[in-house]
Nucleic acid binder design. Structure first.
Lengths: 238, 238
DNA sequence: CGGAGAATATGATAAATATCATATTCCGGC
DNA sequence: GCCGGAATATGATATTTATCATATTCTCCG
């Protein structure tokens, strides 16, 4: 894979993704100031954006593309912890707690990402109350999701978790134009690393869901054909 | 159990627990102001402090005592998500994200807790930068712990998770005066609800660890007699 | 002090899931 | 277009863990 990241120009003032991000509350002069403290980069599919144990140099703002956040377990197995899309911020936890990254971020498809200077972001977060509130909300949501994930891993079987995962992929990335096919393509291994199961079990479950007419497997893509049954299979609480 | 909570007096200015909390950064006039916006309550062992789906009315600051944060899974089984002690704050996630509680808080032993007025806390958090930073750090740490819990549940077996849980209890609450016995007493069911296993499996594992001379079961209390072996059994990464 | 219900303990069995083995298909590079 | 390695698929088996059953012990309360 050709993996050279490329610099490109993109203004915060006109940025579309910003409007869906924590920075949507920033206006006027602060916005052009923000623009002066960031640079833009593109990443090719598969490329590493930052790495477990690394020190954060800035805050990543995803302009477009999909990114996985994952960490390596004690036996070297990957665990996918979060999935990120345009409008999301990335690497904020390590930044806000003066910690190293505990996840790696890898592009799931070609991405464009801005990097906001660390000091400037921290200053802005403390000065702009609306931004501060937005960050509180963002991190609180991530904590809530993580704790819901804990409950699922702890109390649901693999079949339920797989159904839940498919619904989560849908909630996060939505559908292709057909309104049925998931707009994200993950390998079976990646799905297993999110669900918390073996690759073979993940493959088997997807194949079963296919047989049960809950989903259809179109190449590597997943089409949801019976969402009611999928929700029932997921044994949802929330 | 007699469960009437009692009001009592306790000043923030002289509060010992405060020095280990996010409010350690508050000083001078702000401190006496904080004192005017809080009230103190005691809770008996087993008493509910707040409840899943409830609306937060204020921020809880634990003065003394131990508290569990747990949520109910899809089939009614309890999941313990966090363990809290003196100096910790409680209920901040719902407050910061204008959400309802997604956990219940129950006293594991007699507790004294202060409740800071919601509006005042939010105002103070946005005005006092040091407090804001402390909150960022606190919530970031909780997110990190939650994500480490996800990795364990996903990739470790019950034996490893049980060993890890015992080490976590030790890290959170420490030992009794003998330097070996865990200072927290949980039922086997509560341990199971933290580890993510059945009560019987939890009992069996503890009994096995006892047989392996890793721990000793002194009544309902757990004594760590071979911490090196316990750490090895936990298959730690971090 | 005694008895009832809960908590703990332990064995037997069933169910869920991982692991191992082996095809089959897919896909990028030549 | 075709080759080789990776990804996907599927069966057989082993392992882990939950569930069910039944003692035993503890604890609280009258």
């Amino acid at each position: 894979m050709k993996n050279a990241s490329a610099y490109y120009e993109h203004s915060c003032v006109t940025c579309n993704a910003r409007m869906h991000s924590v920075f949507s509350v920033i206006q006027g002069d602060h916005l052009s100031e923000l623009n002066l403290h960031k640079s833009c980069t593109t990443y090719k599919k598969g490329q590493l954006i930052f790495s477990e144990n690394g020190l954060p140099m800035g805050l990543f703002c995803v302009n477009s593309g999909k990114i996985k956040l994952s960490t390596t377990g004690p036996d070297g197995k990957e665990q996918i912890l979060r999935l990120v899309k345009g409008g999301d911020i990335l690497g904020y936890r390590a930044l806000l707690s003066s910690d190293r990254y505990h996840c790696s971020a890898v592009a799931l498809e070609d991405c464009s990402v801005c990097i906001v200077d660390k000091q400037y972001f921290l200053k802005l977060a403390l000065e702009q109350k609306e931004l501060c509130v937005a960050i509180f909300k963002k991190i609180s949501e991530d904590l809530k999701h993580a704790e819901q994930h804990i409950v699922s891993l702890s109390q649901k079987n693999v079949r339920e978790r797989m159904a839940e995962a498919i619904l989560f992929f849908k909630a996060t990335y939505g559908f292709d134009a057909d309104g049925q096919t998931l707009a994200i393509q993950l390998s079976r291994e990646e799905i297993a690393d999110f669900v918390g199961t073996s690759t073979e079990s993940a493959i088997r479950l997807l194949s079963e869901f296919n047989g049960d007419k809950i989903i259809e497997l179109v190449g590597k893509k997943i089409k949801i054909v019976n969402i009611a049954k999928l929700e029932k299979t997921a044994n949802l609480l929330y």
